[in-house]
Design a protein around this nucleic acid. Structure first.
Lengths: 241, 241
DNA sequence: GCGATTCCTTGACGCGCATCAAATGGCCCA
DNA sequence: TGGGCCATTTGATGCGCGTCAAGGAATCGC
């Protein structure tokens, strides 16, 4: 992706993560290196908590390796996954920029390495390179837009949410074959259930129903879409930003 | 609020709306005036549509007078209100900055006057006065945080959503008395039902239940909170930004 | 004061989903 | 090959909420 090799005083994986981070995509290599140097690295095991709802957000992070899950903890202990964060993506940056408290919880979904930065480091970068602001603003705005899609997804029933998800996967990684469009779910069904704000049981029934209706075939994590038109109609409103 | 009077070539109400707009709170009066001058004014009646989901967002607006409702239209025609926009607040600015399509619909809840601007006008302002970026970023970030609260609210059952709303009202405008904390709902119950993503019937039952449980007394739009602790527990997770 | 409209409440009913419980299937390892 | 563990499925049950329908209650008009 980037021709530049890591500065010798920065770990290669850390450099890659920072350089890939879309918040400051348009920043210079030097500015990114400065940012990376001021970071504090942490390594935690699967299941560890990276942030708890309600704590003041004075730092933000960049995920170096592993996967983290951002979720809201309902009053009754039920949890809804907002998003899954992967290497090179910012962690809790929004709360930090808003100067607010964390609005959600973050857990490590796998063993995770992440870099921690004080919020001010980000504003220092903006002062040094003002053109980065436009990138950052566009990114934040996109996040707001994406959240509206999360909300609207929750307004649909479970089969529709599944249809929307599969349709989205098909758009970005579907492989045609003579029997239909092949798609992989990309995660275990239990995890998918959580990401869609439902339970494994209901998800299973939703797949059974979509199968009965002749929309798709299901075999483990592998899906064959047999009626793309019906799938699109079910997950209606989907648009890929 | 502002000592400055409107430039003579700008309508007083338009100037007030632009000067009050929090997106460029830190901009100079001249910059705001430039912005206001490049705006196109429109006036529509109650119920008119200001933006439709799916249309490309090449302009954004500032509400000069009246109230507008931002809502998502579910597949079955049900609608969920995201927020209510009042005078001096931006309209569809997020979608414009993201360069995306409108993710939601906007209707006039009352007769509305609004000013329309091309997206580039905003970026011109940022180029002229870079310090505005920080304001804008903080505001956008807050919006993202607020959206997470919308999502988490939808994860609660209806009585909890009501409790959360009343609790929030109590924090910002509760008046103590010997019988309890007096609060006004601030809108008709039918409107509140929509704002909370439910129906008037369910809202009515929720109030009845809260009354039975001894949490509050209800009389028209006037609420008397008799058990603040229980109310806070029901609407748990609330935090005032 | 009286009707008309709008708003709110109450009851009955059905649907979708979460929950509990149990059965089935896949996979690794001994 | 057999046992244990986990993911997935299936069935039964109950609850919350939206819907339809009807009955008050408040407000505004004249």
């Amino acid at each position: 992706m980037d021709a530049m090799t890591a500065p010798t005083d920065i770990r290669a994986d850390v450099w890659t993560a920072f350089r890939d981070c879309r918040l400051w995509r348009t920043a210079s290599d030097e500015a990114v290196a400065t940012l990376a140097r001021s970071a504090r690295l942490s390594q935690v095991e699967r299941g560890a908590s990276l942030a708890r709802e309600g704590e003041p957000a004075e730092e933000f992070g960049v995920l170096v390796s592993g996967r983290a899950r951002v979720f809201y903890l309902g009053a009754d202990g039920r949890q809804i996954t907002f998003e899954t964060v992967e290497a090179g993506q910012p962690l809790a940056a929004v709360a930090a920029m808003a100067g607010a408290r964390y609005p959600a919880n973050i857990d490590a979904a796998t063993p995770v390495t992440y870099a921690c930065l004080p919020t001010e480091a980000l504003f220092d970068l903006l002062a040094a390179e003002p053109q980065v602001a436009r990138t950052l603003i566009a990114d934040l705005a996109s996040r707001v837009v994406n959240f509206t899609s999360v909300v609207s997804t929750l307004a649909l029933d479970v089969p529709s949410r599944v249809a929307r998800y599969v349709f989205g996967r098909a758009l970005q990684s579907g492989r045609p074959s003579e029997t239909g469009l092949h798609v992989s779910l990309g995660m275990k069904k239990g995890d998918l259930a959580m990401a869609l704000g439902t339970t494994p049981e209901s998800l299973s029934r939703a797949f059974a129903r979509l199968k009965d209706d002749g929309v798709m075939e299901v075999s483990g994590q592998n899906i064959t879409i047999t009626d793309m038109r019906a799938l699109a109609a079910l997950g209606s409103g989907y648009d890929e930003g």
